[in-house]
Amino acid sequence: MISERQKEIIDAAGKILTESGIGGLTTKKLALEMGFSEAAIYRHFPSKEAITLAMLEFLRENMQTRLSSLEPNLRVEDRFNAIFSSQFSFFTQHPHFVVAVFSDGLWEESDQINQAILALMQTKMGFLLPLISEGQSNGTFMADVSAEQMVHLVLGAFRLQMFKWRVSGFSFDLNSSGTQLIESILTMIKR
């Protein structure tokens, strides 16, 4: 669990990532943004990589908590909608996480960061795969494509939506655009 100060550092790092990308995130800039010395940063995190890892872990835990609290008695397609609605709402409020998760340069930083991003994807897949399998079993979703491949297609469309939002400078309403995307996906996968 991260401390309140570590969360503040993560948020400041996210702001720098949003403005300058992964190359612009330095402990010097972070200390300046926080209003204290670089040494103070190192009291909370041993490295820039540790800050990035904490950011990804915070996001994974937050997603786990948010998606675990969704109403389990809803119809399959309503739970599918609720998963993505929760994601779009979260990212609208915290756009710096979009930069952290959907930054191609981040993948090149370290194996630990790659593993943290994979854990994040597996957490999301852990909610979607059983849901899509359930929808295929009860006849809500078509079964011509395996549940795993359907998850890959859905997450690919989600990733593209998030990438478009990021490169547009967060200029369009992600909740509205995201809802349209998910409705289109449901149209395609429903029986």
Rank of each mutant, 00 (worst) to 15 (best):
E61C: 05
S3A: 10
D144M: 07
D78Q: 11
I83N: 12
F36Q: 13
V98C: 14
T179K: 15
L56A: 10
Q136D: 12
D111A: 15
P46S: 03
E4C: 06
S177D: 08
E183K: 12
L155S: 06
A143E: 10
K29H: 11
G135R: 04
R75K: 14
H152S: 15
T140G: 04
H152V: 09
Q64L: 15
E148T: 01
L118T: 03
W107A: 03
A119I: 01
E134Y: 03
I189A: 04
R75Q: 15
D104Y: 05
S137Q: 13
R79T: 03
E134V: 02
V98A: 14
Q115S: 10
L56G: 00
S103V: 12
Q93D: 12
T26N: 02
V151I: 01
R191I: 09
T123S: 14
A50Q: 07
L118G: 04
Q149E: 11
F127C: 01
A50G: 06
I113F: 08
G156A: 15
I2H: 08
W107R: 05
T140D: 02
V101Y: 11
L70T: 10
R66I: 04
N138R: 09
A54I: 00
F102P: 00
T65F: 09
A157M: 14
F102T: 06
A39V: 08
I113M: 07
N175K: 11
V145C: 06
E19W: 05
L70V: 13
M34I: 15
L118Y: 03
F163D: 09
A143G: 12
S37E: 08
G24R: 03
F97G: 01
A31R: 07
E61Y: 00
L160D: 15
S177E: 08
A116I: 02
E148W: 10
I10N: 02
A116V: 00
E57R: 07
T187V: 10
L131M: 07
V76H: 01
E38T: 03
R191L: 10
N62I: 02
S137C: 09
S68C: 05
S171C: 08
A31K: 05
F172K: 05
L53V: 06
R60D: 02
L160A: 12
E109V: 06
T52N: 11
Q112P: 00
L74Y: 08
E8Y: 09
S89M: 08
A54H: 05
F141M: 06
K164L: 13
L155I: 07
E109K: 06
P95H: 10
F91Y: 15
E71H: 14
S89E: 13
I132R: 08
S68M: 04
D173I: 03
T27S: 10
M142G: 15
K124S: 06
L120G: 02
A147F: 07
V99Y: 12
L160W: 09
F127H: 11
T27C: 10
M150V: 02
Q93E: 15
R60G: 00
S20L: 13
S86Y: 07
V98F: 00
F91M: 14
F45H: 04
L30S: 08
E33S: 11
S184C: 08
L160T: 10
P95L: 09
A157D: 05
R75Y: 15
H44R: 11
A40F: 09
M142H: 14
A50C: 08
L131P: 03
F141Y: 14
D111N: 13
